[in-house]
Amino acid sequence: MRGAATRGVLLLVGLAVSATCAEILPAGERARLHEPWTVRLRDGQEIRGRLAGASPDTLQFRRILEGGEATVSLERAEIESLSLPGRKWLQRAQEAVRAEDWPAAREILAALYDQRRVALDLLPARQTDLLSFLPRAQLATGATAAALSTAGDLLDHATTPTTLARLREIRLLGHYRLQLEGEARALAEAGRAAGPRYRDSALPDLVLALLAFRAGEVENGLRHCLRPLVFSGPRPPRYLPACYALAIVAAHALGEEDLRDTLDAERRQRGLPWNPPPILAEWPERAPGRGPLPGADGAPLPLGRPSAAPALPYVPVAGAAGRTPSRASVPPPSDSSPTPP
């Protein structure tokens, strides 16, 4: 009797869980993603079958033929294009990404990624670009390690500059959030060395600055975050507001009040929001001897509450004059990494 009651409770719990998941991608729809693919070969043939396996050079499909089933192995080089089930979910995924509904985007993109990951090299660039939002969604919903893994996989198949940039940023953010400081530093330095002076993203400089700030090297941190401030023109790069916030606080901590005030005035003149990284909530402990940070109106500039995680902030990407958020931004984290020592 008791065993049956327990099983009943477990069943109810399972149903509740699956009901929650099913709200975005119902089980039935999920199952349909594994229906047969249509494969068009270079010689004009068309083959339809369920994916049965994959190797670096081939894909295997199980076909229903008269009298039974057969498995056919196709060379990847022979394949012209693929049509996979779930087109409407591609659309839904796009909508979720546009709306920055990251839990939904994660759910859908994970299923799509699972469906087609063995054939990434055969997908059109726009699909790979869409899938590159999966690590973004994972990062945004706290699955940092998964984000790193997915980004690593997708990087091998990314072809457009936008996709590559997005995935590299995720890797950098992921390493930083996991407190893998050595790796984060190496990625940031590589990112900085690779690009032109004026870049689309200030994330590498911001990460280097945060690492320096955390080590108490305030002057060093200031130097890092000044770089994107200097090399930014009418189109401010991503993460520039956070760099301004860090630079202003660093100048204040160093007692350089003129520089602090100049940078804050410049930030406002450029129309950039006050967007301090969470680490700055701890700054009085790290920059002794200085009072509150004065704002233009006399009230102190807020530094936020100390966070439980070494997270990076949401930085709406600047359009002209910092008013238009773009899609290439990282939303507020919600991971629960342990408090750094």
Binding site: P196, Y198, S232, G233, P234, R235, E266, Q269, R270
Partner: peptide, 11 residues
């Protein structure tokens, strides 16, 4: 402030 409106040549 004026120079900030000057993008790099290639851009």
């Amino acid at each position: 402030r004026a120079y900030r409106q000057v993008p790099p040549y290639r851009e």
